[in-house]
Simulated assay, not measured.
Amino acid sequence: MSAADDASAVRAARAAYNAAILAHDVPAVRAAFVDGYVGIAGSGGEVISGGDAMTAYFADSFRNPQFISYVRTPDVVTIAVPAERAMERGHWLGRFRTATGETRLSGEYLAVWVPTPTGWRLRSETFVTLGREAATAE
Results as ranks from 00 to 15, higher is better:
1 M>H: 12
1 M>Y: 09
1 M>G: 15
2 S>Q: 14
2 S>T: 15
3 A>P: 04
4 A>V: 12
5 D>C: 06
5 D>L: 06
9 A>F: 12
9 A>W: 13
9 A>Y: 11
10 V>I: 08
10 V>T: 06
11 R>D: 09
12 A>C: 08
12 A>K: 13
13 A>F: 11
13 A>P: 14
14 R>W: 01
14 R>C: 02
15 A>Q: 14
17 Y>W: 09
19 A>H: 10
21 I>M: 09
22 L>Q: 11
22 L>P: 03
22 L>H: 04
23 A>K: 07
23 A>N: 00
24 H>W: 05
29 V>W: 12
29 V>L: 09
30 R>N: 08
31 A>M: 07
31 A>W: 10
31 A>R: 14
32 A>R: 01
35 D>I: 04
37 Y>R: 08
37 Y>N: 11
37 Y>K: 08
38 V>D: 11
38 V>W: 11
38 V>A: 06
38 V>I: 13
39 G>W: 07
39 G>C: 00
40 I>H: 04
43 S>M: 10
44 G>E: 07
44 G>K: 03
46 E>S: 14
47 V>E: 14
47 V>K: 15
47 V>N: 13
47 V>R: 15
48 I>M: 13
52 D>A: 09
54 M>H: 11
54 M>D: 09
54 M>L: 06
55 T>V: 10
56 A>L: 01
59 A>H: 08
61 S>F: 02
63 R>P: 00
65 P>C: 00
67 F>S: 00
68 I>W: 03
69 S>L: 12
71 V>P: 03
72 R>C: 13
72 R>S: 14
73 T>G: 00
74 P>Y: 08
74 P>S: 05
75 D>R: 09
76 V>N: 09
80 A>W: 12
80 A>I: 05
82 P>A: 15
82 P>D: 14
83 A>H: 13
83 A>P: 14
84 E>N: 11
87 M>Q: 08
87 M>G: 02
88 E>G: 07
89 R>C: 14
90 G>M: 05
91 H>I: 00
91 H>K: 12
92 W>F: 09
92 W>E: 03
93 L>D: 01
93 L>I: 02
93 L>R: 05
94 G>V: 03
97 R>P: 02
97 R>M: 00
99 A>Y: 10
102 E>S: 07
103 T>R: 07
106 S>K: 01
107 G>S: 11
107 G>D: 02
110 L>D: 13
110 L>G: 01
111 A>I: 04
111 A>P: 10
111 A>E: 10
113 W>F: 02
114 V>P: 15
115 P>D: 12
115 P>N: 01
116 T>C: 06
117 P>S: 15
118 T>M: 12
118 T>V: 14
120 W>I: 03
121 R>Y: 00
124 S>F: 01
124 S>G: 08
125 E>K: 11
126 T>S: 08
126 T>K: 08
127 F>W: 04
130 L>R: 04
131 G>A: 02
132 R>A: 04
133 E>H: 02
135 A>Y: 10
136 T>L: 15
136 T>Y: 13
137 A>Q: 12
138 E>V: 12
138 E>M: 07
